[in-house]
Design a protein around this nucleic acid. Structure first.
Lengths: 143, 143
DNA sequence: CCGGATCCTTATCGATACTG
DNA sequence: CAGTATCGATAAGGATCCGG
């Protein structure tokens, strides 16, 4: 343990950390949150999903969908008609997750410019410098 | 609550989706959130960080720290002493992100049992069906 | 004590082809 | 229309050596 002489050794949460990793392993991939957010409004068919998510392949859509279904985040309903029709819909659990994910999205919407500014500052100063280097609020759009 | 818009034919939020991916690309990796949460309490030295995060390698710690510093989520302060001392500390931006991340952790803590239950149910009902694993006799790792 | 640079292993993703 | 199966490219992650 680190327990240095400063402040209180109230570091780490042995339990929460594990949960963070757990949920991040679920939604941390490239498509999961996109599928969930696309499905937020109303049930959708496989084809609609693929059309609504530019760039996703059948394989990735199928894999993501099955994983989400397995975890109870969405429900899959197949109608034995011709042509076959399958609809995917978020469950209550899935919607609750979406809610938390939206919090992250809100953070990004609020702070992404700060992040971009810091990144530009580091590019200019040569990254390796120590702190005490408060970069000017460069709002330049370029890049 | 999740995004309402229920009943509306219009799908998703074209903008939020992009922000979600943006933040997920930052923290979606294996170690970023662990570093952030470990650093939540007080500033820590490189060695302390490594000791507090079981399983992380020097390389991954260095890479993660530099990325976080570049994005302005933490500050790095080097003291020119002997032996050298370097301390890492979350910035206000980093703490605000941690707050959102904690929301996700809270979701996981609340619902991880539901997820586990769904997963077991699917194993029983045969959703996963047969793995068809034995179908490939020679699947040699030709690589 | 801090952490950069290199090499290697392995999970993940994308494209294509095929089936019900 | 709704998937499934296989292959190859890529890069994240891990181990280790080396320098400051």
């Amino acid at each position: 343990m680190a327990a240095r002489t400063i402040g209180g050794p109230c570091q780490a949460w042995p339990e929460e950390s594990g949960f963070i990793r757990e949920v991040l392993d679920r939604i941390g991939d490239k498509w999961t949150v996109l599928v969930i957010s696309t499905l937020a409004g109303e049930p959708m068919r496989y084809s609609d999903l693929q059309a609504s998510i530019p760039g996703i392949s059948q394989r990735m859509l199928t894999v993501t969908l099955k994983a989400l279904e397995r975890d109870g985040l969405l429900s899959r309903t197949a109608y034995p008609e011709i042509p076959p029709r399958v609809e995917y819909e978020l469950t209550a659990l899935g919607r609750s997750l979406l809610d938390s994910v939206m919090a992250l999205a809100a953070w990004a919407a609020t702070h992404h410019e700060d992040v971009a500014a810091s990144r530009r500052a580091h590019e200019r100063t040569g990254v390796g410098r120590e702190k005490t280097r408060s970069a000017a609020p460069d709002t330049a759009p370029a890049r």
